[in-house]
Design a protein around this nucleic acid. Structure first.
Length: 551
RNA sequence: UGGGUUAUGGUGUAAAGGUAGCACUACAGAUUUUGAUUCUGUCUGUCUAGGUUCGAAUCCUAGUAACCCAACCA
């Protein structure tokens, strides 16, 4: 019986490789394309790749797969680097596929010289036709049998800028009737007279993914090149290039991409949400982007824990969002500062409390004594949560109701004597009696209450905008539902309220996380100004009562 | 009507022929000056049909289902 955590399939492969002496240390890489923001799916890959080189001897490179200049930009490079660092990982070398353009070009010449690549003049439409289909073999291009000399000459001219975009391509000469579509003479280079964010106008031909990725791995001596399952068919090509080019044999391994319930994870879909203004940008706190989650208040530790807990395998999956929330709450419960805020206020007046008097009470700042205590003002008029009063109490209701008693957190026990309604029948004020001898810390009243509620002293309260977020989609798997995934957007995913907050929260910082007692975990938003505080709700607390009343 | 990958509770993931385990969720209870946290317990699973074996999630045979591949994207 071993209480060691079992290994995932990649760890097993690595341990075997290490045990066999195939490698003495490993090299992995995280290879984003700088054409968008990182999301939770990338976090999986980051935790995996960096995690493996942390667990085993070796290191991880950050390599930008920047082979398509028309969609890529340095803006993305910067945000990607920031996100990786925020997640808590360090790369050994920062590299770019574009660093290798000259080497890649030479590799292409090698293939041409071996008679394994040729310049093709047919259009993309013709190429698609000749490619055949998964069930039908393709046909050779009429340009397939050019001489090595002619190919060399034409490829040099391609590089030289002698042809317009799309006029010619360099293709590998493999097999047009191969059952694997990717082996049917894949394109190696295409002509794009485009400005590249790093190489500028130096090149007008750019390598395709398949001709760049594997070779880049090889150049960097990557031992374990880990990618998602849709690249499985590419592995045959990956190995073909390594064999024909006789270069360092990196190996590709694939795992199943991670899906999360109640959200979407593809760049394309996330882009639509941004463009169609369903969210306010890539870092909207409802987005599953790293920047969005950071703004929402997720902690790096919670994301790492989540990735570790889910594990990795090769089967299709949709992970419960509740597991992410569990990891989040677990971390936040241990680190968040406690404070009181009333999101939906109802006035509570203590009729037997002296007018104009203020008492300074103390309350704990955090989950344990190390966090210390703080002072909170208490007075005759308080704000409490509207949902903490029921005119006609439900079964098992422990909170305020006519004649009922509750404890005000870190203060006194009060009893509700009367309630006042406005002309619409809405309760607008509770009138209560307090018991002076029930003061927290020196309670001699002998009174017992089943509930403790939070409150804020009305004359001392500050006001803050609070943004309450809910899941972005109404269904577990928006992408697998009928019709457009956008039809399943949750229209109530953002609710903005003005809340009364205890005075100490005026000193809230962007770095700290807060637990608003009984309401959830919150963090200050970057939209805050000196005059206006804005808080984001990261996640609610678990709420057993909410479940109870559903029954 | 080609090739590839995968099938274990509601979800995710273990078990390398020998007690189907862990986590989340759900449910029940204890504790609690947060109906939080913490603690205890319960429910639910090997895609199907055959076969091999003392013994099968695991091996064999035949099915079934899901996903990926026909971008000058990555």
């Amino acid at each position: 019986m071993s209480d060691e955590k079992s290994l995932n399939f990649l760890e097993e492969i690595i341990e075997k490789d290490l045990a066999d002496g195939k490698y003495t240390s490993i090299v992995t890489r995280f290879p984003p394309e700088p054409n968008g923001y990182l999301h939770m799916g990338h976090a999986t890959s980051i935790c995996l790749n960096f995690g493996l080189s942390k667990k085993y001897p070796g290191y991880t490179n950050l390599r930008f797969d920047d082979t398509n200049p028309v969609t890529e930009d340095t803006e993305y490079v910067e945000s990607i680097k920031e996100d990786i660092k925020w997640l808590g990982f360090e790369w050994k070398h920062e590299r770019y596929a574009s660093d290798y353009f000259e080497e890649l070009y030479q590799y292409a010449i090698t293939l041409i010289k071996k008679g394994l690549a040729y310049v093709d003049d047919i259009s993309s439409e013709e190429m698609a036709t000749l490619k055949g289909s998964p069930t039908e073999p393709g046909k050779d291009s009429p340009f397939r049998n050019r001489t090595v000399e002619e190919n060399l000459e034409l490829f040099a001219q391609m590089r030289n800028g002698d042809f317009p975009d799309g006029a010619r391509t360099l293709r590998a000469k493999i097999n047009m009737s191969h059952p694997n579509m990717l082996m049917r003479d894949p394109i190696l280079y295409r002509i794009k007279h485009a400005h590249h964010h790093r190489t500028g106008d130096k090149w007008c031909i750019y390598p395709m993914y398949d001709f760049a990725h594997g070779q880049s791995d090889s150049i960097e001596n990557i031992t374990h090149s880990i990618c998602t399952l849709e690249f499985v068919p590419h592995r045959e090509l990956y190995d073909w290039f390594i064999e024909k080019l006789e270069i360092y044999p990196s190996h590709q391994y694939e795992f199943a991409r991670r899906n999360l319930s109640y959200t979407v994870m593809s760049k394309r879909k996330l882009l639509q949400l941004v463009n169609d203004k369903h969210v306010n940008g890539w870092d909207d706190p409802r987005m599953p982007t790293i920047s969005g989650m950071r703004r929402r208040g997720f902690t790096p530790a919670s994301i790492r824990k989540f990735c570790e807990t889910v594990g990795i395998a090769k089967r299709e999956n949709v992970v419960d969002f509740s597991l992410l929330e569990f990891c989040l709450r677990e971390d936040l419960n241990n680190t968040a500062l406690r404070a009181m805020a009333v999101l939906d206020p109802l006035k509570l007046v203590i009729t037997n409390y002296e007018d104009g008097k203020t008492e300074e009470l103390t309350s704990e700042n955090g989950p344990d004594e190390a966090y210390g205590q703080r002072s909170i003002p208490f007075s005759k008029e308080l704000w409490i949560e509207r949902e903490d009063f029921m005119e006609e109490p439900a079964k098992k209701w422990f909170r305020l109701a006519p004649g009922a008693m509750v404890r005000l957190k870190s203060a006194y026990i009060v009893r509700c004597d009367h309630f006042i309604k406005d002309e619409n029948g809405q309760v607008i004020e509770l009138q209560c009696t307090y018991f002076p001898e029930s003061k927290s810390g020196s309670d001699t009243s002998g009174l017992q209450t089943k509930a403790v509620i939070h409150w804020v002293s009305a004359p001392h309260a500050a006001i803050a905008e609070v943004r309450l977020y809910d899941r972005l989609f109404k269904v577990e798997n928006p992408s697998s539902e009928e019709g457009d995934f956008k039809d399943y957007i949750n229209a109530d995913s953002l609710q903005v309220v003005n809340a009364f907050i205890e005075p100490s929260l005026k000193n809230a910082t962007l770095q700290n996380r807060y637990q608003f007692l009984r309401k959830g975990y919150f963090c200050l938003d970057k939209d805050s100004t000196e005059n206006k505080l804005v808080f984001n709700r990261t996640v609610t607390l678990k709420d057993a009562w909410a479940k109870e009343i559903k029954k």
